[in-house]
């Protein structure tokens, strides 16, 4: 699933750096494996869980397909924003939206283990915020490449507009973490510390 989502991301981020032929082949391979993977995965689930799985997958695919549009709109909004608050809030919204790419990974486990709905929503929300933070880290690491290839990340927008990202990253990080603290329980906090102190999940 990770590789399929990554392929979809590569297709959406098409730039002249990737030869068109490779992109087309990648697309065909990506969709072939996606279809076969879903078929196999569905078959591996108990019959009573299959509908929930397919519903989640459909919802996930639709949300995922909107990410490139959200990224493009956010980039323009930041570039033309007149207030600092508008810039930061747009960047945070964009990161939160991009973080939905974690959703199916949580859903699959939740469905297969038949996790209680209340606990499931909590885990889903924690996952979204942790993923938001991880994507921000990833954007920092990829900044040079993203700026060169014209990727539509909020950090590229800040770099283009102000020539620096540092103060913006600091503020975005802090606001995301504060939102997280508003609902995080002890387990979520412990996991956050483990993961973001040890950057293995966020930096790779």
């Amino acid at each position: 699933m990770d590789s399929i989502v990554n392929s979809a991301d590569d297709i959406a981020d098409y730039t002249p750096v990737i030869p068109k032929e490779d992109l087309l082949r990648s697309e065909i391979l990506g969709y072939t494996s996606w279809t076969l993977f879903i078929r196999e995965l569905e078959k591996s689930l108990p019959v009573e869980q299959r509908k929930a799985f397919l519903d989640s997958l459909l919802e996930y695919s639709l949300k995922l397909s909107r990410i490139p549009l959200v990224e493009r709109n956010s980039l323009e909004k930041i570039l033309f924003a007149r207030t600092h608050e508008e810039e930061i809030e747009t960047a945070i919204e964009c990161y939160l939206y991009r973080a939905i790419d974690i959703d199916i990974f949580v859903s699959l486990i939740g469905i297969s283990l038949n996790v209680d709905e209340k606990l499931f929503s909590r885990i889903r929300k924690v996952a979204m915020y942790m993923r938001t933070y991880a994507i921000l880290d990833k954007d920092i690491a990829d900044l040079e490449f993203d700026a060169k290839t014209g990727a539509n990340t909020p950090l590229v927008a800040f770099l283009r507009k102000y020539g620096t990202i540092e103060p913006y990253v600091k503020e975005i990080r802090s606001k995301i973490y504060n939102h997280f603290l508003e609902f995080a329980d002890e387990k979520a906090l412990r996991l956050w510390e483990t993961i973001f102190d040890n950057t293995s999940l966020s930096q790779k």
Binding site: M1, D2, V5, D101, I102, F105, V106, L108, I109, G110, L113, V115, I123, V126, A127, M130, R131, A134, L191, T194, I195, L201
Partner: peptide
């Protein structure tokens, strides 16, 4: 993504 989801559960 998989690792993060698994770590959470």
């Amino acid at each position: 993504r998989t690792e993060l989801a698994v770590a959470l559960f």
